[in-house]
């Protein structure tokens, strides 16, 4: 989806949010996806000699949304919320690389902690469901990239 289409879709969805529901009251969007859970996944491979290459991925999953035809994600940064809405059609999970390195095996996942700390301070994501007819749910609470949690509301 191009940025223009995404933004027009966002504009229209805002327009829907503000339309009257017959009785003069705005029709609120349906609630956001539930049970957001974030985990970290490490992948390590032999890089030859005494070296290993590794990467850590932050994985955000949520419960299936009744009637959803897809989901959208939006990046929230320390400088503001991106106007770009990212289509996400690959199921109920989103995965993002948050740390990686190649180092001597004896060092383990070298500097992983500081890389995760840096990621969590700069970026978060929120998710919403796309329903038939292009209607969208509310945005979920934002989930900090690099951080894990049990369940968010």
């Amino acid at each position: 989806m191009s940025l223009a289409v995404a933004l027009v879709a966002a504009s229209l969805s805002v327009s829907c949010d503000t339309s009257s529901g017959g009785g003069g009251q705005p029709s609120p969007p349906p609630p956001h996806p539930q049970n957001l859970v974030a985990t970290l996944e490490d992948e390590v491979r032999d890089a030859g000699g005494d070296q290993v290459s590794w990467a850590t991925y932050w994985k955000l999953c949520w419960d299936g949304y009744p009637g959803a035809v897809g989901y959208q994600l939006q990046a929230v940064t320390s400088e503001g919320t991106s106007p770009r809405v990212q289509p996400h059609q690959e199921g109920r999970c989103f995965r993002l690389e948050v740390a990686k390195n190649t180092n001597r095996r004896e060092l383990g996942l070298h500097k992983r902690d500081v890389m995760l700390a840096l990621a969590s301070g700069q970026l978060a994501y929120r998710v919403r469901a796309v329903l038939a007819g292009g209607r969208t749910s509310e945005w979920s609470p934002a989930a900090g990239v690099g951080e894990t949690t049990a369940t968010v509301r």
Binding site: A75, T77, E79, G80, R84, E97, V98, A99, Q122
Partner: peptide
């Protein structure tokens, strides 16, 4: 990492 690039693109 990919998270850095996503952050900068959004900014």
């Amino acid at each position: 990492v990919a998270a850095d690039r996503a952050f900068m693109a959004a900014v």
